[in-house]
Design a protein around this nucleic acid. Structure first.
Lengths: 261, 261
DNA sequence: ACCATCGGTTCAAATAATAAACCGACAAGA
DNA sequence: TCTTGTCGGTTTATTATTTGAACCGATGGT
């Protein structure tokens, strides 16, 4: 593994739950020698990707990420473009909408929107990276990946997260085929108990699946009518965001979604 | 220079004017061997900070910057928090408002907002890093830096950008003292001819100046009344953003601004 | 048919990264 | 007060990684 990758991996250690990390912790988490870690994090600091803060001299993500993301959004409006659609989706369905994007080997949260309808809602703050096997977004993205990718994911350990998590590779393979057949995925309490969710895939200009939009609701609110409504709103949002991102929906997806509506 | 820094420097080569860069260009711009550059940019790609796009296989900033900035904004709302103030400032003054932040040795643009009042406006898209000596933001930030930093900047070459750019270190030193004395800075066509601007400093929790807010207008619209209005709106926005960022205005700034109002 | 340039690869030589031990400072516990 | 442990940070010789020049096939303009 190259030095640069090691340094960048440090950035991945910062999460919503753990936004501040001291040098020793950082070294432990990254499994690096403290001196090595110090050198790397110092270089990240000099660039501004990380900054040192407070009396304990802990580290956190720095202001350079803002600068870079402003630049990126100016050229490829991704988050900014999708957020209004996401908010509309949350409003239409009365539930929590969620946007995720495939980055390298993992599916990352890009944003979410809450409806103002209910007092109870599914919060998404805690899930930075989504497990492929236990979320509707994960399932739908995985379903539309090339086979080697799918198998690589299934070859890894598949943790049981709730009582309803599917953990057998064979069953998951069948599940993915089913998802491909219907053009969307559904998860019933496999990630968090009591949370049902549905997701549709997003595609880039070359027809590759690069992410997903999902709606998550408390199981008790997931009536058959509500499922139909969500499915309808989701396919609309999915095709809208795909278009905004300059992508094109594969023909079979278009027909599947048209049938569903 | 460390390998990590070299890799990160590659990110700085992407600008609004030059969002896509091929491998050979990248190597030339960064003054790196092509093989070295390839290895570095590949590592950046794997992480998602950079992505390869199109038939020409050019590189551009990748989606990981979004992920990181979302994470950073969740913990330290910086851009998100300041943008509404910036928009209000543009609206109040009827001119272009601009927000910048000191990152390492350079002053970078963080955002800007346009007023809808006039048909002509000062556009800020082209200025990613602001010269210290020729912009009101640059002057005001430099004025409030510790002396070694100031002198380091003045020791570097000072390019003449327009006919009205001040380029003598002695004159600039006097200018900075003046800025410190009045709590804001003004630039009259020193960066772009026909553009006048005014800026106030922003401070962090330790009273260090970390950035600036500015208003830029066409010279012809900069009447004495308008200057007063802008100065008033600027000091308001400056103290607002400083507070939002968890900073505190130094006592002397507070009194200077109170006098101005 | 030529020449230049593109993105990407190879491999020996050179350079930069690494690990372990160490430093002073600080805080909790005995 | 005197350990004891941990903190952020530094030093050093050893080691592994990075580097640069040459090279590849593909592409495109002359």
């Amino acid at each position: 593994m190259g030095t640069v990758t090691k340094a960048l991996e440090l950035l991945n250690l910062f999460t919503r739950q753990r936004p501040l990390i001291g040098l020793s912790d950082l070294a432990r988490l990254a499994d690096l020698n403290k001196a090595t870690c110090y050198r790397l994090v110092t270089e990240l600091c000099d660039f501004g990707l990380v900054e040192q803060v407070g009396s304990a001299r802990e580290y956190r993500l720095g202001p350079a990420v803002l600068r870079l993301s402003t630049l990126r959004e100016a050229q490829v409006p991704t988050r900014e473009a999708a957020m209004p659609v996401l908010q509309a989706l949350a409003q239409k369905t009365g539930e929590t909408a969620h946007l995720s994007m495939l980055m390298g080997p993992a599916l990352h949260t890009l944003g979410f929107a809450y409806a103002t309808t209910h007092m109870t809602r599914v919060t998404m703050e805690d899930a930075e990276v989504l497990p492929f096997h236990a979320t509707s977004s994960g399932l739908v993205v995985l379903a539309f990946q090339p086979e080697p990718f799918r198998e690589a994911v299934l070859a890894q350990p598949i943790p049981r997260l709730t009582g309803r998590t599917e953990t057998s590779p064979e069953a998951l393979r069948a599940r993915l085929a089913e998802v491909r057949g219907q053009g969307f995925a559904e998860s019933r309490g496999a990630f968090q108990a009591e949370v049902h969710s549905m997701a549709v895939p997003l595609f880039d200009a070359l027809g590759r699946c690069t992410g997903a939009v999902a709606v998550a609701a408390l199981a008790s609110r997931m009536t058959e009518d509500q499922r139909r409504l969500i499915r309808f709103a989701l396919t609309g949002a999915g095709s809208e965001i795909t278009t905004l991102w300059g992508g094109t929906l594969p023909a079979d997806i278009v027909t599947l979604w048209r049938l569903a509506a």
